[in-house]
Amino acid sequence: MLKNIQEWILLLAIFGLTAYLGNWIGYGMLSVDGLLGIFVLILISLAGLILQKLIPVNIPSVGYIGILGILVSTPWFPGSEYVVEWTSNIQLLALATPILAYAGISIGRNWADFVQLGWRSFVVAACVFLGTFIGSALIAEIILRMQGII
């Protein structure tokens, strides 16, 4: 467990630094607040990863992390204004770019399987993704309209 935590901290720090530098180049945001923002996000992720190991229920760690993130930034949590202020210096898209850079390198391993699928599979896959996406959007649209949110 301790070894796990040590490794998580190092990996999250490497990822966080890359995202922080991307945040600077892409969005011109270079500040101590931004560094603190990354630090807070790493702490939240770490806490969620640890909780997932400690609690013997089959919930993915992102479940805990999402809830922790919400909790520490709600107005009634002490110090939440700092959490919100610091993390607002890190753009969501700046976190996304390194994820997909690592993903690009890693999906190379699936490439041989991918090209073997053939065009018929591609057509079905496109229908699956499009169907789910539009199906969800349609239902959301109907309910949001009924509620008068949009």
Binding site: G16, S45, I65, G66, G69, I70, V72, F77, L92
Partner: peptide, 13 residues
């Protein structure tokens, strides 16, 4: 996980 943490702190307020 970092992305979800960021989304969490967007939702919170």
């Amino acid at each position: 996980t970092l992305l979800i943490a960021k989304i969490g702190v967007i939702i919170g307020p």
